[in-house]
């Protein structure tokens, strides 16, 4: 086993276990903090995959903004009975069955695919992934249209969120 594989196994186990804690733990603040652990694990996986820019964005946007937004929302919607009642509904076993079936189906489909155990080819020397990503996002031959649509989507979400959470006098 190489060092990379050992790092992957440790990070993968931490990611999956903290993911399980997110969906099972009763206290929602703790669930949001476990989500931060999961997101950190995913950021380390991005680093293992040589996607350094996405790893940084994962920490800044996901952990810095989204997870903190979750913690604010949990604090704003606290209620005593919501924390003493069950954390899962009465049909939780059906959800667990669906999740196990989905995982089994995905695993079966993936292992029947020919590229399943493909190895990564070495990154060519002088290849700058961040430079390439910037080019792809801004060149008209690349993805400039989805990039602009994403910015319009963010603006619409901003306006919509302010409108929805606004208290009318």
């Amino acid at each position: 086993m190489t060092a990379e594989q050992i790092i992957f196994l440790i990070v993968g186990a931490v990611t999956l276990i903290s993911g399980l804690m997110v969906v099972t733990v009763r206290n929602l603040i703790h669930a949001a903090l476990w989500l931060v652990a999961t997101l950190f694990g995913v950021a380390i996986l991005y680093t293992l995959l040589n996607a350094s820019f996405l790893a940084v964005v994962q920490v800044v946007v996901y952990i810095g903004a989204i997870a903190i937004l979750f913690i604010f929302a949990v604090m704003l919607t606290r209620r005593q009975s919501a924390e003493t009642g069950a954390s899962v509904n009465t049909n939780w076993w059906m959800g667990a069955l669906m999740a196990v079936l989905t995982f089994a189906g995905l695993a079966y489909l993936l292992q029947s695919w020919s590229g399943f155990s493909k190895q990564a080819s070495a990154i060519p020397s002088g290849f700058d992934a961040i430079n390439q990503l910037g080019d792809a996002l801004t060149s008209p031959a690349g993805f400039v249209l989805p990039f602009e649509v994403a910015s319009v989507l963010l603006l619409a979400a901003l306006v919509g969120a302010v409108y929805l959470a606004f208290t009318k006098k």
């Binding site: 969906v23 954390s87 959800g95 999740a99």
Partner: peptide
């Protein structure tokens, strides 16, 4: 799948 379980089961 863990996320799917959470969506289906959490209250």
């Amino acid at each position: 799948s863990i996320g799917l379980f959470g969506v289906l089961a959490r209250r």
